[in-house]
Amino acid sequence: MKPAAAESVTRRLIAPLGESSLAFFSYLGGSSLLLWQILIGFGALPWGRWVVNLALPWRWKVLRNDRKWQLVLDQMEKVGVASFPLVFLTSLFTGMVLALQTAYQLQKISAQLYIGALVALSMTRELGPVLTALVIAGRVGAAITAELGTMRVTEQIDALHTLSTDPLRYLAVPRIVALGVMLPMLTFYADLIGILGGYLVGVYKLGIGSSLYMNMTWNSLRFKDFFTGLFKAVVFAAIISTIACYEGFETEGGAEGVGRSTTLSVVISFILIIAADCFFTALFYFVFP
């Protein structure tokens, strides 16, 4: 091979690698920067006052008139309350399927008794947080990116700037706070509903005694099972909201651009959620055995 040809081959092979790693690191940098700025905006919110107001029922009226609190509440409603039916269905069926599938296996060794423990542990440690996060990334993350992306391409984000309002404070912070609070809550519900699904199958289909099933469930659960699941949920919430806001703010190119960044937002969130789940499961496994 001639040197010139070799060089061109090397160039063809290496250059795209360089470009894509450059793109990767600029993405990583950009989204981390966004998260950092959000956390700063987060700190700038009047947290202390909120906590005091939240603790005193007769001060709730003040909170209701607080515009920033109102923004967060609106998002909590959109993100959390409105997602509940979907999370309910997903986790109920997952719990039922889990009970049936394990029954199929455990029947062979006459160990159906352990279905309760198995369902409870898999729901709280793994399926509750991960399935809820994936459902929310698809339902809420996509909606956030599409909304912010549309605002970007119709110059509404620019308009916020001209009205001396920081889009990060006005748009991103309420969403990340709302997701950070609501995703763990939804996950907690998903855990309980999944266990309920397993119970329905275990007791009414497989004929395990009701109190026996409940005993197997509660005796197998430890606080750390719930806790590690909820901890994961907080991490997943940060992933979903950061990626969704970043993709939204970085949208360009009209309707097509909004579609592109919405797809990217969901895809990247999915990958990061699975990767983070693997990482934290391993971490908890070795750190808190």
């Binding site: 119709t154 110059e155 509404q156 620019d158 700037h161 001209t162 309002t165």
Partner: peptide
């Protein structure tokens, strides 16, 4: 602070479509 001295009319108006007309005007 400087931008408070400015008003800008965008080509497509760039109204916030989650807010009503009144809330848009009252925003700042």
């Amino acid at each position: 602070r400087l931008r408070l001295k400015f008003g800008m009319l965008f080509q497509g108006a760039a109204l916030f479509d989650s807010l009503t007309v009144g809330e848009n005007v009252a925003f700042a």
